[in-house]
């Protein structure tokens, strides 16, 4: 499964567990409009660290958390190289 598909899969799982409905996940959609709240995003990052063995937000020097879905996926794609 590609990194992007893994992220989408995990987003759907977290949304289901938290009783949320995911919206359209286009690249330019803001993460906080995706249907997950900040706590849901935190759970997502924790789960992705287990699945991908990677936490791009600890290893990166960038202190800003990504705003859009596209930037979020990119952080993982860059982090895996």
């Amino acid at each position: 499964m590609s990194i992007k598909l893994t992220i989408m899969d995990e987003m759907a799982r977290v949304a289901r567990e938290h009783g949320k409905t995911l919206g359209q996940l286009d690249d330019d959609v803001a993460l906080l409009d995706s249907g997950l709240d900040s706590l849901g995003l935190a759970v997502l990052v924790a789960r992705l660290e287990d699945r991908l063995g990677l936490d791009p937000f600890t290893t990166s020097d960038d202190v800003q958390f990504p705003v859009t879905v596209g930037d979020f996926v990119k952080a993982y794609e860059h982090g895996s190289h």
Binding site: A42, V45, A46, E49
Partner: peptide
């Protein structure tokens, strides 16, 4: 806590 969050 992140690990705990993943476990619930």
């Amino acid at each position: 806590v992140r690990a705990m969050m993943a476990e619930g």
